[in-house]
Design a protein around this nucleic acid. Structure first.
Lengths: 228, 228
DNA sequence: ACAAAAGTGTTAGGCCTACACCCATGA
DNA sequence: TCATGGGTGTAGGCCTAACACTTTTGT
């Protein structure tokens, strides 16, 4: 059943850049391999057409759920890409989202399409303008981490200081001094020690922390900036 | 001549939140009064339908040029609004931009529609979801001013320290100490003194500055953050 | 003459950075 | 036993924030 309009309308899709993290691979993105032309066989971000009776945010969340089986800690619209020739079939614009998920919690998608994690440093050439979208997403993530504790959405519930530091270093592409990093993070008061450490002397076993979300929301409510 | 598609497509518009500033009114936005239903008579942001053979950025720039007769210092896409019922006629999504212009340089638009500046504190109820769009735009501007010297796009070529301070206070809704503000800004090395001050002693006539764009680009290239 | 606006310098506290050693574990 | 990883404290410099008085101009 055809739909007709007085003026030409573009098609609208949503695409999700799903970030995950683990110690061995660093920051990674979840890609799916295209089964159809155009760009058949190439990797791309999961996404789909915006439904006419659903807003884009809802659509993106639905896609994420289908693809990962979980509700991500963070989903954010970060840009809309509208180059005229970005899709060879017809005029298609895409509203892009990025999401932060715990890689370990991700269940293979219900989707038939195969999905795989790629470290952001080893992403193959992508379909459409997705290379560009990825670059923008990485930039936004970098900006965001300066002000919001995004790391905690990527790490397991309980983590160690060195893990947290490695994550920050991986996203920001810098290196920190251990003591300074711990002091700076500690001063924020957003971490809770988990379990008791071996009582004795200094141990090689790292202290385990969890993120104190209530404290964070309370501080945020009072208007504070993380300033990392 | 009708256009037909196999699936329903939304209409896509671009809207521009045009910010200007002057000492008497503070931060202001340029609004146009709608001449047609829906929301006839209400004020709204200038905007229009995205052309099928033009990307949204180009379209937004064109609109800006038509409306203000000048190329703004800053134009940035800041969000896409997709609520299903935001336009009563049909499904319309809008890609929103904000622009920073020198209010004094703006020529009345070629457009028949009348346009007027409103201080952001005295904006009337707007058409569609434009109230919401304005709130988001103000938030983005506030974020941005922490890292980029947006003030210089809003002020005249030559300005005084108190003017610059008033602008920052107006956008951030805070107050600064004169001496600290001047010291902080001065230390960045982005300002050039213009003209000689009356040679004698301390004068009440403010020193005039201009923005050193080359210096800024050079520093930015070396990867630095403004951190205001 | 009075009020409003603008120029000017110093000090104390906090934050950031740089830096070295010891212990425990696993190879 | 050696290499690796992790824990711990301090000192110096820079930035920030707080603070008062004088001059000029306009009313």
């Amino acid at each position: 059943m055809p739909y007709t309009y007085e003026y030409p309308h573009p098609a609208v899709t949503t695409d999700c850049v799903i970030f995950g993290y683990d110690v061995s691979e660093g920051l990674s993105v979840l890609l799916v391999q295209r089964g159809l032309e155009p760009y058949k066989g190439r990797w791309a971000f999961p996404g789909g057409f915006m439904k006419i009776d659903e807003d884009a945010d809802t659509g993106a969340l639905r896609e994420l759920m289908e693809e990962t089986g979980l509700q991500p800690g963070t989903v954010e619209q970060f840009g809309t890409f509208t180059q005229v020739d970005r899709d060879p079939r017809e005029r298609v614009i895409t509203i892009a989202y990025y999401a932060l998920v715990r890689k370990a919690d991700v269940r293979g998608g219900d989707d038939a399409a195969q999905a795989r994690w790629f470290p952001v440093t080893q992403v193959p050439p992508l379909a459409f303008d997705h290379d560009r979208i990825l670059r923008v997403a990485l930039g936004k993530l970098k900006e965001k981490i300066h002000f919001e504790p995004v790391g905690f959405d990527l790490l397991p519930e309980v983590f160690t200081m060195p893990q947290l530091q490695a994550l920050y270093e991986s996203i920001l592409e810098v290196r920190f001094d251990r003591r300074n990093f711990a002091a700076k993070i500690g001063k924020l008061g957003l971490l809770t020690e988990v379990g008791e450490r071996p009582a004795g002397t200094a141990s090689r076993i790292p202290v385990r922390y969890s993120f104190n979300r209530e404290k964070y929301l309370e501080m945020k409510g009072k208007g504070f900036r993380l300033e990392f």
